[in-house]
Design a protein around this nucleic acid. Structure first.
Lengths: 161, 161
DNA sequence: GTTTTTTTGTTGACAAGGAAACAAAAATAT
DNA sequence: ATATTTTTGTTTCCTTGTCAACAAAAAAAC
């Protein structure tokens, strides 16, 4: 196995563990709310004039899927919708007081997760941070370029009728 | 945003891009086979006497889900099942020649993905590798310990009737 | 050796999310 | 100004995976 594969595999493993570990506590403290619902609440609480389309883009999900989630949140009175006077098409969301409660619980959980893992991050020097950050930036840029190539290639082979 | 959150966010972003980018080509080259099916084929091709339970554990999925996937693969004649003489309960899988073809295509794709990203990894020095690897190891161990705590806590609160 | 418990694989009911079709509104072209 | 195209949100149908219940086999307890 190459160094490349080893590093990526380790990333993946750490991520899986992190997700698995956090989900347990999440489910316990936020019983009755699905992860995707909490996710939406978090986004709505942190952005101005969020709508179905923004949420979909942020989560790499379809508008249809988000539409269903926000509908459930509206039914539960955790969010409410509003519109601007100059646009009758876009529908924005804001948290209700009950939604804000869920939002706060979630934020506190995140803080506690961060605290739990502090011991690890304290041992990282600034230089080590920089090394990793630089690597991730490089990789990210490289992938952006490759995604761009893909995009162009797709456009270059249009459906002919 | 703390350094901790920043690094994790960058990890997540790189991963999303990687998945997104690779999936495109995968779907193109392995048309007619779902990602989860290919995933199972890969595992079956690389392990001895794989069964539903092993696959489920490897992918963090339920046995039910795996059972359905392997059923589809059996119908497509990409895998076949066999049993040992001393055990009438466990059912193992192996690739058919057709399944082997899919396996090989998948392996080649992986090689090409690796080649595509070589430019990035070539720029990483051995020390930088070590830094990242050490960090990931530490984090991984820390999470294992935390998961253990969770496990114990769960066992300590049995359902009383 | 018999009984109980655990493991293994399968199935059916259910929920989540994607794809596509759609209507209404907005933006753009002409 | 009008016609066309794009954007936005919703709904329906379909696929995938989870959960719970189950039967058969194996393992463990007694």
């Amino acid at each position: 196995m190459s160094q490349q594969e080893k590093i990526l595999e380790e990333f993946r493993s750490v991520f899986n563990k992190l997700v698995w570990l956090n989900r347990g506590e999440m489910e316990e403290k936020l019983k009755g709310h699905k992860p995707s619902e909490v996710h939406c609440i978090e986004y709505i609480g942190k952005h101005v004039d969020p709508n179905v389309t923004r949420l979909a883009e942020a989560f790499y999900m379809t508008r249809g899927a988000i539409s269903k989630i926000t509908k459930k949140l509206l039914d539960k009175k955790l969010i409410e919708s509003y519109q601007g006077p100059e646009n009758k098409k876009e529908i924005y969301f804001r948290l209700t007081p009950q939604g804000r409660e869920v939002f706060d619980i979630h934020e506190n959980l995140h803080r506690s997760f961060r605290g739990r893992d502090d011991v690890v991050f304290e041992k990282i020097s600034d230089e080590q941070y920089k090394t990793m950050s630089r690597f991730l930036d490089m990789y990210s840029q490289h992938l952006d370029a490759e995604i761009n190539k893909q995009g162009i290639r797709l456009e270059e082979s249009p459906i002919v009728e």
